[in-house]
Amino acid sequence: MTTEHDDVRNLLAAWAFGALDPTERHTVPQHLAECESCATEAERLHETVRLLDNPALAPAPGSTPAPAPTPAPGSGAAPGSGPVPDPDGVTRRPATDILAAARRSRPAVPRVAVHAVPYAVAVAGLRGLLPEMVGRWSMPVVHDWDVHATVAHLLAADEHLARLLGLAPRVPPSRLPADLSWTDAWERRTADVIAHEHGRAPEETVADWAAQADGLLAVPEAHDPERAARAVELMGLRLPVADHYLGRAFETWMHTDDIGRALGLVVPPPPERHLWQLVRLAVRILGIALGPTAPPVLLSVTGGEEWVLGAEGEPVQAELALDAYDFCLLVGGRHDPGTVPANATGDAAAVRNVLERAASLAWL
């Protein structure tokens, strides 16, 4: 059972971005006046957003600087620490460096509805890395992509939702057979866009990606929850537009982290409330992928939420517990199902089925 304290902590990121629902706008300030730990976290988030909205601003005279953002779980970094050695041996600069880059270059985060805030923040996060890419566009990142190709992939990936919402493509169309599966069409389009963008300057690719992202944050669906409730088919799934915005946030964050790793930078995870929005989306998609006949497994994610996945009305055959951050990395294809940190009891085959199916969802 969650407490009022837990509820408010989950609202702090939205509070900092001015994206609270009307019914929540009085709850947060009242709790902050009584809870020192939440007030400290709220001030940190508010200071970060303030700097993102206006990089020229310095801390107010006499104010206490906000604590450094908490590093990603498993990064081994301490707040305010120096370079961080990754488990793979790569030295990465701490999350405070990302904020410093954001201060120099990041534009204001658009005011959008709650479902689009994670995407707006993820886009701002990648923009914060742009100055670090200069001169290193050919550095390997993930799969067989360099930094330039990774941004081109995001241009291609966002394009699918952009077209559904009436935005014109920014790259010439591909000649794809009509009978291609969505996965094959997705991969072919990505390959075509990357090939096209490698013939242009990286700055041109970034400009088109940023302009398309701005377009997605400007359309009515980014501001009107009722319009975003309309279901559309994308990536083989018919989901509300709001959920597809979360999908775009998920992928943008994941590739920002990929680029950060390649550049030796620690990219902070999404704010807690955004992370939970991504977790809930991933669980819904995982449930669809498992289908109604899979052996039932009780999935719990750190923070208290749990779901029974698989066949309904049958006894649970296993229990599986994962950290929210690790669960997202698993679904994003950045954790191996055999080595992801997890606690499991019961039918090992049922657990393995859930983990492997979660990892198979990665379209990133």
Rank of each mutant, 00 (worst) to 15 (best):
H255N: 02
V123N: 01
H46P: 02
D326A: 11
G260P: 04
V316K: 03
L237W: 12
V109M: 02
V112K: 00
E356F: 12
R248F: 02
Y119E: 03
P173D: 14
G287W: 01
V301C: 01
E204G: 09
G346W: 11
E204Y: 02
A359S: 13
P268V: 11
L298I: 00
L309V: 06
V114M: 07
H198K: 13
L361Q: 08
G125A: 11
P83D: 11
W182T: 08
Y325M: 04
E43S: 14
A168S: 14
A162K: 03
A242Y: 00
G287D: 15
A124Y: 01
I194A: 11
N353P: 00
L263K: 09
L99H: 13
V193I: 11
G76L: 03
T64I: 10
E204D: 15
A149F: 02
L278D: 09
A72Q: 01
D224L: 11
A294L: 00
D88T: 06
M254F: 13
V141Y: 03
L330I: 07
T64P: 03
A211V: 07
A108Q: 11
V112R: 01
L246Y: 03
A207N: 08
G332A: 05
V112L: 03
H115I: 01
V28D: 12
P177V: 05
L217Y: 05
M235C: 12
P220C: 07
A289P: 06
A13T: 04
S360G: 13
A124R: 05
V142S: 14
V308L: 06
A218M: 08
L161K: 06
E159D: 13
P140G: 07
R230Y: 10
I288V: 12
L322N: 00
G304F: 08
P85D: 04
E197M: 13
G82W: 09
W137F: 15
G338M: 05
L329T: 00
G247Y: 00
A350Y: 10
A195V: 08
G264Q: 03
W15K: 05
A102C: 14
P94C: 06
N343Y: 09
I285K: 10
G62S: 07
H26K: 14
M235L: 14
T64G: 01
R261S: 13
W276E: 15
D6V: 05
P110E: 05
R284F: 04
L129K: 01
E312F: 01
L239D: 00
Q277C: 14
